[in-house]
């Protein structure tokens, strides 16, 4: 009886060099997919996440982003306002997001 179990040694293992090297994007994490930078994204997410009808106020925003300078937070808010992602509600310190998802 032949117990010849010849493993098919078909093709030599191709080492595909050149392709599929992950993590080769020289990471500038300043521009995630939607064209906003990191600060802007965080601000937008916080505002989106706020359940209050009048929106999130700037103080809350600041206290939740304490690792960031106030100026950048303010800048991000301004930017998001300009782009139409957020808008001010009861006063200039309360913001809601337009993308209601």
């Amino acid at each position: 009886s032949k117990a010849h179990n010849q493993a098919s040694v078909g093709r030599p293992s191709i080492s595909n060099s050149g392709m599929g090297e992950p993590g080769n994007y020289s990471g500038n994490n300043f521009m995630p997919a939607n064209g906003l930078n990191v600060v802007q994204n965080q601000v937008l997410n916080l505002i989106k996440a706020c359940p209050r009808p009048e929106g999130l106020n700037f103080q809350d925003l600041r206290s939740q982003l304490q690792h960031m300078p106030v100026a950048s937070v303010k800048q991000a808010v301004d930017f998001l306002c300009n782009e139409g992602h957020i808008y001010s509600t009861v006063d200039d310190d309360h913001f809601k997001s337009t993308d209601a998802e």
């Binding site: 300009n82 782009e83 139409g84 992602h85 957020i86 808008y87 001010s88 509600t89 009861v90 337009t98």
Partner: peptide, 20 residues
């Protein structure tokens, strides 16, 4: 408040203009 509505409308317009 009218103001809120107006701001929201304006914001939506800006967003729409962006996405064209």
């Amino acid at each position: 408040l009218v103001r809120i509505q107006r701001n929201k409308a304006a914001a939506l317009l800006r967003l729409a203009a962006r996405n064209v």
